[in-house]
């Protein structure tokens, strides 16, 4: 009889069905479609390292660019890449990835190209730091010229600053190049 009450109650109420165009919203913490921000990526490779199903990998075009590749058909949406990305370049959006007609084609394979920049000092091609990181590092406008340096030149510049602190007469040979 309790069953009868339940089902007759169902009959009197409107149905709980959502139309195909009006589906339930996904929770904001849902781990859905992956996005990659090439401007933030430093190509450190952490995401490829932590990815259990090996959905992410990097390819290099030496001297020109580094490409970040992602195959959604191999992703298990665990979110480790987002969690471990030091510059927050990867984000799993809270929307449902749509179905596609081909596994190899549109939408299932993402490629994001990170263009290398020549170092303003030595000319070596390198992955530029994300703009936010640069702003944090050189917030005071200490040495704007260092913004375009490659990592090695930054290291050189930092040590040069250190040395000038110890030897105030500034006997550092300008133009001393690091070994590449």
């Amino acid at each position: 009889m309790a069953m009868l009450k339940t089902i007759l109650g169902n009959l009197l109420r409107p149905s709980r069905t959502r139309a195909p165009a009006d589906m339930p919203v996904v929770p904001p913490t849902y781990r859905g479609a992956l996005t990659h921000d090439a401007g933030r990526c430093t190509a450190c490779g952490t995401c490829a390292f932590v990815c259990a199903p090996k959905a992410i990998h990097f390819t290099q075009d030496p001297g020109i660019s580094v490409s970040w590749h992602f195959f959604i058909g191999q992703c298990s949406f665990c979110g480790l890449c987002e969690q471990n990305c030091p510059t927050r370049a990867i984000h799993l959006r809270a929307d449902v990835p749509g179905s596609t007609n081909s596994a190899g084609g549109d939408g299932l394979r993402l490629e994001s190209v990170i263009h290398l920049q020549p170092c303003t000092r030595c000319g070596a091609a390198h992955v530029p730091l994300p703009a936010a990181t640069m702003d944090a590092l050189w917030a005071a406008g200490a040495d704007e010229a260092e913004r375009g340096y490659c990592p090695d030149c930054r290291r050189w510049a930092a040590s040069a600053r250190l040395r000038t602190a110890f030897t105030p007469d500034g006997a550092v040979a300008e133009g001393g190049r690091h070994d590449r």
Partner: peptide, 9 residues
């Protein structure tokens, strides 16, 4: 049946 189960049918 669908309406009794609360479905659209």
């Amino acid at each position: 049946v669908a309406r009794l189960q609360g479905r659209q049918g």
